[in-house]
């Protein structure tokens, strides 16, 4: 710390001399010239506000356009959810009586995929026709908004061209067992390939919900429905499908009622 300087008997300054140094005009001028600091001015607040809003809007826009498209699964497999049948058939994993929980089953399905790949691939060699195109779609997650809008418009046009999913040409209502177990599986006009869907039906007094890989109806399902008699309503929904370009398309759910 700097030592304090001491001065003894300094020559006094007269009042007249001090008065002669008064300059009130300069003081008034100084007070007028001494404006507010820039950070307290309105224009500063305004500018900062506008910039902040612009940054937030940009960030929100970018983050929304960066949301990746959900990656469709490559592999085809049958994943049935029936607890009762879990031991009977390795393909049937889980069953739930309550159909409201279907979404959970679907969500869990994607996590289970990696574990099930090995077992399911061996069962579905014949159904691997629709798998290769789907992976290409996932890399398109980061496009700008304008490009995305254009893409959505194109998809709307394509949707109009795409027909209803059908089993042997039947898109709803009664269907014969023979047609129901059509080896071609669920077909859609316009070159659309289904690689996953959910099936719901009541068989032998049990509500079954199953997630199926591929577009075909598993033979187990066919047999079970046949064994439990006729007039069973079967609903097909939550399709995962791609068009000729490998882009995902949405398909409407449909219900069929089996008859002998």
């Amino acid at each position: 710390m700097e030592k304090i300087k001491t001065i003894l008997d300094r020559e006094p300054i007269s009042s007249d001399y001090i008065r002669s140094k008064q300059d009130f005009a300069n003081v008034v001028k100084g007070a007028k010239g001494l404006g507010k600091p820039y950070w307290q001015t309105n224009w500063f607040y305004g500018t900062v506000g506008v910039v902040a809003v612009a940054v937030i809007v940009t960030a929100v826009t970018l983050s929304s356009s960066d949301t990746p498209v959900k990656k469709p699964d490559n592999n085809q497999a049958v994943v049935m959810t029936s607890a009762d049948d879990q031991k009977k058939d390795p393909v049937i994993k889980e069953a739930k009586e309550n159909t409201d929980s279907e979404e959970e089953v679907v969500a869990a399905d994607s996590e289970e995929t990696s574990n099930e790949e090995e077992t399911s691939q061996s069962n579905t060699n014949s159904e691997e026709t629709t798998t290769t195109q789907s992976t290409q779609n996932t890399s398109e997650g980061t496009t700008n908004t304008a490009a995305r809008k254009t893409q959505e418009e194109e998809e709307v046009v394509k949707k109009a061209e795409i027909g209803m999913p059908n089993l042997a040409g039947v898109t709803g209502g009664p269907i014969a067992f023979r047609d129901f177990c059509d080896p071609l599986g669920i077909q859609v006009d316009g070159g659309v390939m289904i690689h996953q869907y959910t099936i719901q039906y009541r068989s032998c007094a049990r509500d079954i919900t199953a997630r199926i890989r591929g577009n075909r109806l598993p033979s187990q399902v066919c047999d079970e429905i046949r064994d439990c008699g006729s007039a069973i309503e079967v609903t097909f929904s939550n399709f995962k499908a791609v068009d000729r370009d490998g882009k995902p398309v949405q398909l409407k759910a449909f219900s069929l009622i089996t008859k002998p």
């Binding site: 300054i13 008065r19 140094k21 008064q22 009130f24 003081v27 007070a31 007028k32």
Partner: peptide
């Protein structure tokens, strides 16, 4: 009106100066 501050400036200038000059060596 800041111009009306004049009388107070004249009245207190000397004693404020002396207060300051008492504590520093540069006139």
């Amino acid at each position: 009106n800041p111009e009306r501050f004049g009388p107070l400036y004249q009245k207190y200038h000397e004693q404020i100066f002396r207060y300051i000059y008492q504590r520093m060596d540069d006139e």
